[in-house]
Simulated scan of single mutants.
Amino acid sequence: MKLRIEGECRMIISQIEMNDYPAVLALFKAVKTELGKHNNDQWKWIYPNRFTHKTDIGNGAMYGLKEGGALLAVVTVDSLQNRKYEHFPWKDRSGRSACIQRLAVHPREQGRGLGKKLLHYAEQTAISQGFTSIRIEVYETNASAIALYDKNGYEHVGEVRYPMRKSAYITMEKQLNG
């Protein structure tokens, strides 16, 4: 599904292909560098990595927002869930839950509402694939990402901790079927 953004004649959201891989690597390098400047250890050299990106692209699960051919932001929409999620009090227990993974906006493009555009695209993609809710985990020190999800109807469910991370990840859910 390709989407041309209204009022943005050169802005398109579409599935990322392997020929976009160098641009994906450059985008994540810029994001990781920016996070490091703010002492945010959310994404380090170990994750996300080249294998993660190639898998997302190969599975057809990574989508990107481009303007004039330049990759500005990406998101992965899939159904891969952490086993730690099993005991969380999710509202959607009988439907199919998608997961948003690795939503990233290039630092020089932040503040333009691109994350929100990509989030809405991810939700529509999930709906079109028959999912009834979306789950996500957000690093608790990433206040802007948490605010984005809060403003867009995501509810806090729990938290997950990972090795080599100072802070926890907040798990969130949004019902897509009403």
Rank of each mutant, 00 (worst) to 15 (best):
15 Q>F: 01
135 R>L: 12
126 A>N: 09
55 T>W: 01
141 T>N: 03
148 L>K: 11
4 R>L: 12
89 P>Y: 08
59 N>C: 07
22 P>A: 00
96 R>D: 02
158 G>Y: 04
170 I>H: 01
112 R>W: 03
51 F>A: 15
151 K>M: 11
61 A>M: 02
140 E>N: 10
38 H>C: 07
126 A>R: 06
56 D>L: 07
154 Y>K: 06
111 G>T: 09
83 R>E: 13
76 T>W: 01
155 E>Q: 04
154 Y>P: 00
50 R>C: 08
148 L>P: 04
85 Y>I: 13
159 E>I: 07
135 R>Q: 07
128 S>E: 14
117 K>R: 13
167 S>L: 05
128 S>P: 06
83 R>V: 05
18 M>F: 07
166 K>A: 14
49 N>M: 01
124 Q>I: 03
161 R>G: 04
115 G>C: 05
20 D>R: 06
130 G>N: 07
89 P>D: 06
8 E>S: 14
109 E>V: 09
31 V>L: 10
9 C>W: 00
83 R>H: 05
107 P>S: 14
9 C>N: 09
145 A>V: 03
178 G>N: 09
123 E>I: 12
139 Y>D: 09
1 M>Q: 10
1 M>C: 10
127 I>T: 08
45 W>V: 15
4 R>A: 10
160 V>G: 00
23 A>T: 10
116 K>S: 04
103 L>F: 07
95 G>A: 14
106 H>R: 15
121 Y>E: 08
177 N>M: 08
123 E>W: 13
26 A>P: 04
59 N>P: 00
127 I>R: 13
95 G>H: 12
65 L>E: 06
136 I>Y: 09
48 P>Q: 11
24 V>I: 15
44 K>W: 03
55 T>H: 01
113 G>K: 10
20 D>G: 08
96 R>I: 08
73 A>H: 11
100 I>L: 10
95 G>Q: 04
118 L>H: 07
69 G>W: 01
160 V>M: 07
1 M>G: 15
118 L>Y: 02
55 T>C: 06
9 C>R: 04
81 Q>F: 02
21 Y>L: 13
77 V>F: 05
70 A>Q: 12
92 D>P: 09
64 G>V: 08
87 H>L: 06
83 R>C: 02
89 P>F: 07
154 Y>S: 03
155 E>H: 00
97 S>A: 15
8 E>N: 12
131 F>V: 10
66 K>W: 15
10 R>W: 05
47 Y>R: 10
144 S>T: 14
90 W>K: 09
34 E>L: 12
39 N>Y: 09
8 E>L: 14
132 T>C: 12
150 D>W: 10
98 A>D: 02
4 R>D: 05
14 S>D: 15
175 Q>I: 15
115 G>H: 06
129 Q>G: 01
157 V>I: 13
144 S>W: 06
16 I>K: 01
169 Y>G: 03
61 A>Y: 05
8 E>V: 06
78 D>M: 12
93 R>C: 11
12 I>P: 06
23 A>N: 13
35 L>G: 03
73 A>K: 04
87 H>V: 13
85 Y>A: 10
17 E>P: 00
138 V>P: 00
29 K>V: 08
95 G>S: 12
56 D>M: 07
134 I>L: 12
2 K>H: 07
72 L>Y: 08
92 D>F: 09
23 A>G: 06
161 R>F: 06
148 L>E: 02
97 S>W: 03
11 M>W: 00
105 V>K: 03
